[in-house]
Structures are given as structure tokens and as C-alpha cells.
């Protein structure tokens, strides 16, 4: 929901970044990105493969594979780029992974509890013991319609593509971030899983938080309706509009936007 008076969560100005390969700086991928996200808003960043949209989400989350070469990013008034990945998470930034990792040997419930308690600590709040946490997580798991048996399994091990994506949203539900970046969370989902994931995200939206969805397709936006749609091309946001822009992209493709830019 757009409310021009609401607090600015994320302010990105002229952000430039290069990919690092084997410790050697390489190709510039982000070439001056601007983005402002206020509390209560839902943004979609769309673009073709290689446009830089996934890189943008990883750079915001602090992925060590990228080096920021210019510009600024401010998150809730703090210099985001000065923070390590874990500090960004503790500050309330969340990235749902395009390719969720499997961690054999760590149970889903242990991961969630350890992560939750880390944030509780950061916020000066009480940690929960395993029993208390179980009550909390059994509530949260309803958000993504997952069976409680998934909690005892190793993180994402043997999960289907859809289950892995739902598991990312479960982490979001438990960690309650201020800003969630969903990196192609819709990719590889069948229609039922897409609906569950979208319902989950919608149920977590409040006037105090915000979501940035990075996606290829308009399909997801039928379920999570964006306030803003941005088109990324060549490492920059080249067009911004309302949700109707997504429909136009679906109908006409990306070429006309790129030509206009």
C-alpha cells in the first residue's frame, strides 16, 4: 500500500557493483541503481536474464561475491553497505534465496531457533528455549501450510523445489524482517505451491514492513499485488510504474522498454 508519508526503509542511490571471481574483480553488473522503498510497500523488480536483478538482491543482502564500486544504500537510516551480511540480517533485512541451500545435519527447527534467538539477542529480547520455540514455530508453519514433520528434517534436504521455497517463507515468517527481498521465489513453483507461497507472503505484510520481489514473470504478481513495478535492464532500473506495467510487459515483452530506455 502506498503511503507517501510512511517511513523510508531502503534508499538506494546510484549503486554500482562488480562480480568477484576467485578474488579478482571482474565485470560491472550494477551500473547505477536507484530505488526507494517505504514501509507498507510492495515492489516488483522485473527484467530479462542478465539484467542484474538477482545481483541487486544479493548485493543488498551482502553477498561476498560482489564488490560495491559506487553509490549508497541506506537501510532504516544506517549505511547498509558498511554492514556485514549477518549485521544486515540482524538489522531486519531478509533475502529469500532463488536456490535455497541444503544443510544436511542441521534440523530445520534448530536452524530456525538459532536464527530467531540471534535476532532476539540483537533486539535485547529473551531467547526462547526449544519448547517455547516449538509453540511459536507451530503457529508460523501454518503460514506456508507445511507439515510439522518438516521441522525435524535437515534444512531443505530432500525437499522438492516448492517445499524449499515454502521453507524460505517460513524463515521469513519466523524472523519477521522489516524488508524482505524475494529472489525469484516463484521460479520452479507449480500453481498450488505458488498460491501457498503468495498467501504466506501476503499474510506477513503489514504497514511496518515491505517486500521487494525479484521476478521474471508477471504470474506471481497476480497473487502478490505490487504497488510499484520496476524494470531492470543493463544493470539499472530503466522504468518504474504501477502494477499495470507488469501486465504490459507480459503482453508486449521487454524489448519496447529497452528501446525506450
Amino acid at each position: 500500500m502506498i503511503n507517501k508519508d510512511s517511513r523510508v526503509l531502503l534508499e538506494v542511490r546510484n549503486l554500482r557493483a562488480e562480480v568477484v571471481v576467485d578474488g579478482v574483480r571482474g565485470v560491472e553488473i550494477l551500473k547505477g541503481v536507484d530505488l526507494t522503498v517505504r514501509a507498507g510497500e510492495v515492489h516488483a523488480i522485473m527484467g530479462v536474464n542478465g539484467s542484474g536483478k538477482s545481483t541487486f538482491s544479493k548485493v543488498l543482502a551482502g553477498h561476498p561475491e560482489y564488490t560495491v564500486t559506487g553509490g549508497t544504500a541506506t537501510f532504516e537510516g544506517r549505511d547498509l553497505l558498511a554492514l556485514a551480511a549477518e549485521e544486515r540480517a540482524r538489522a531486519g533485512l531478509f533475502l529469500a534465496f532463488q536456490y535455497p541451500v541444503e544443510i544436511p545435519g542441521v534440523s530445520n527447527s534448530a536452524l530456525l531457533r538459532l536464527a530467531y534467538n540471534t535476532l532476539q539477542n540483537e533486539r535485547g529480547l529473551e531467547e526462547l528455549d526449544p519448547l517455547e520455540f516449538e509453540d511459536l514455530v507451530l503457529e508460523k508453519i501454518k503460514v506456508v501450510e507445511m507439515d510439522a514433520s518438516f521441522l525435524d528434517r535437515s534444512v531443505n534436504e530432500g525437499f522438492s523445489g516448492g517445499e524449499k521455497k515454502r521453507n524460505e517463507i517460513l524463515q521469513m515468517a519466523v524472523l519477521e524482517p522489516r524488508l524482505a527481498i524475494l529472489d525469484e521465489t516463484d521460479s520452479g513453483l507449480d500453481i498450488d505451491a505458488l498460491r501457498i507461497v503468495a498467501n504466506g507472503v501476503n499474510s506477513l505484510l503489514t504497514a511496518d514492513n515491505a517486500v521487494v520481489m525479484v521476478t521474471h514473470y508477471q504470474r506471481l504478481l497476480n497473487y502478490i499485488v505490487p504497488d510499484y513495478v520496476h524494470v531492470m535492464d543493463g544493470g539499472r532500473i530503466v522504468r518504474t510504474g504501477g502494477k499495470e506495467l507488469a501486465l504490459e510487459l507480459e503482453a508486449r515483452g521487454y524489448d519496447w522498454v529497452r528501446a525506450a530506455a
Binding site: A89, Y99, V106, L111, A115
Partner: peptide, 28 residues
């Protein structure tokens, strides 16, 4: 590296993430 970044993005310090991943490797 991907697992390490994943855990850091969930708020674990780098050292703690490394410890957890080593533990997980043994726990299997």
C-alpha cells in the same frame, strides 16, 4: 560458500556459521 552466505543472511556470524556447518557435516 553458498551455505556460509545463507547462514550469515539469517543472522549467524561467520565463525558461528562455520562451526554450525562443520558440526552438521559431522552430525550426519
Amino acid at each position: 560458500a553458498d551455505s556460509l552466505f545463507f547462514l550469515r543472511s539469517r543472522g549467524f556470524s561467520e565463525e558461528r556459521a562455520r562451526n554450525l556447518l562443520s558440526h552438521a557435516f559431522a552430525a550426519e
